[in-house]
Design a protein around this nucleic acid. Structure first.
Length: 455
RNA sequence: GGCUAGGUGGCAGAGUGGUUAUGCAGCGGCCUGCAAAGCCGUGUACCUCGGUUCGACUCCGGGCCUAGCCUCCA
């Protein structure tokens, strides 16, 4: 089987064929670092990290770029509010982003370019756009001339003329067309800025991705990915800039867009004030639970976030880790082919999880079954799951309750002593008291284990 | 208004022109001092109305409903 990808450009699932199998290029839009990441920001990070892993199984050299946008008016605002340079804000939240994503099992991309380190490339690209007649200068701004690009609107399936008619965008008087967007804008002395042929200023929102992807991946890339809300205008504008600047007929050959995380079916967004911050969620749930939930729905579908789905994911992981604890002897193994097939079919993680659970069910209950357990662990690896030691998983779960493990162990010993005397009233009282505190006892042939109940 | 995606069993969520998704919960059984956990078994779902077909949840058309984009946004 080959890798299949749903391409937003054609609205169809297509067989993935890299332009150069010796160097596969992927660019994903990363965070603008002015705040902690919410779980909606985490979805593309998790999903496209998986894409990178899927591609890497087949291609030896996959270059995966995920940028950090570290110059932006929201960052400027946050820095001004605090009275600190923008670097303080951007570094703080970039670090937090890395920590949070690591706890979700997201690896680092091959390259992680930053906008502020590519100002020269950005200016260079804007100059080329002006030379080619695709951009014009007006009142210290440089704007992209949408009318100069015939294919504008093709990705998002919009008609340029209709967009003008229904434009809700604030139309600056110096724009030739309402749809024209800013490539470069002037900075006041108290705003961050760089010298340029158009005076001291800073880049507009879209240009940095075009400049950085060209700098690190080349003028035509294989896959460009991001959230659904970036289709328009961000990606549409990237295409326009890049193709005009390079004089090419293709910018990215495949476009992938993840669906939204919703809360009570409404899109999670800053303006609705219903964002769930990953940093906060991690105080209550293991990162692996968040990851499992993120993978439980197909990446293009909306994913409704709730405590219920978190509890379900945790219960499932408890069961799987229990199997590993009882059967895995850490021998090497290959993942179940069904899991790989599902991943290569446009990252079908729900089907992959179903296959993972079938592997789990194949594990014998009556005999030690290290072969199937190892397959379970290896299959989990393909999804970035089940990679910690089972004991570590359960220790982490216990630690959440903040109880004294020694005390629990002592109570369990007392209960078992009472049971051996057949003093079941005492034994049951101890068990009930522990249950009150959220501790569940599990009697087994090896003795009595315990763990924290689901919240 | 324009454009896009989707409506599947109690919940979450894949998929398929005729055959078991999977998980969580529930129910029955095994096990257990009794439970829990674990294991085994179990539910016969696919918005609505037409059409195509030997046969449609799956294809086509209409309708209803939901969400999203068109403005910063993953």
């Amino acid at each position: 089987m080959s890798i299949q990808i749903y391409n937003t450009l054609t609205r169809r699932k297509e067989i993935f064929q890299p332009q150069d199998p010796a160097r596969v290029t992927v660019y994903a839009c990363g965070p603008t670092v002015y705040n902690y990441a919410h779980i909606g920001n985490a979805r593309p990070a998790v999903v496209f990290d998986l894409l990178y892993r899927v591609l890497s199984r087949r291609y030896a050299n996959v270059v995966y770029a995920r940028n950090i946008t570290d110059v932006d008016d929201k960052i400027n605002q946050a820095a001004a509010d605090e009275g600190v340079p923008i670097e303080v804000v951007s570094r703080r939240y970039a670090d937090a982003y890395h920590e949070d994503m690591a706890r979700l099992g997201v690896g680092r991309p091959t390259v992680e370019p930053r906008a502020t380190e590519h100002i020269a490339e950005i200016i260079d690209m804007i100059e080329r756009l002006v030379e080619r007649g695709c951009a014009y200068q007006a009142e210290q701004h440089v704007l992209f001339d949408v009318a100069s690009f015939e294919d504008y609107g093709r990705l998002s399936r919009r008609d340029r003329r209709e967009m003008i008619a229904g434009a809700r965008v604030e139309v600056a008087p110096y724009k030739k067309n309402p749809g024209d967007f800013v490539l470069w804008k002037p900075s006041s002395p108290d705003q961050p800025g760089w010298d340029s042929p158009w005076g001291r200023g800073r880049p507009g929102w879209h240009i940095e991705c075009s400049a950085m992807s060209a700098a690190h991946l080349g003028e035509v890339i294989d896959i460009h990915a991001g959230g659904q809300d970036l289709v328009f205008p961000h990606h549409e504008n990237e295409i326009a800039q890049s193709r005009c600047a390079h004089g090419s007929d293709t910018f990215a050959r495949y476009w992938m867009h993840n669906g939204f995380v919703t809360v009570e079916k409404r899109k999670m967004s800053k303006s609705l004030g219903n964002t769930l911050i990953v940093h906060e969620l991690l105080k209550h749930w293991p990162g692996e639970v968040l990851r499992y939930v993120l993978l439980s729905a197909h990446y293009r579908q909306p994913l409704d976030w709730s405590d219920k789905v978190l509890e379900q994911a945790q219960a499932t992981l408890d069961r799987l880790y229990g199997l590993l604890r009882d059967h895995d002897d850490a021998r090497p193994a290959e993942p179940d082919p069904t899991v790989i097939d599902a991943m290569e079919d446009d990252l079908n993680t729900p089907t992959a999880l179903a296959a993972l659970n079938r592997v789990a069910r194949a594990i014998s209950s009556s005999h030690p079954d290290p072969a199937n357990a190892a397959c379970l662990r290896a299959s989990g690896a393909a999804l970035g799951l089940l990679q910690q030691a089972a004991d570590a998983w359960f220790d982490q779960r216990r630690a959440e309750t903040g109880v004294d493990a020694g005390e629990i162990e002592a109570l369990i010993a007392a209960r078992n002593e009472a049971r051996s005397r057949r003093d079941f009233d005492t034994a049951d009282r101890i068990r009930d008291d522990l249950a009150e505190r959220g501790i569940v006892l599990k009697d087994g042939p090896e003795g009595t284990a315990w763990e924290a109940a689901n919240k």
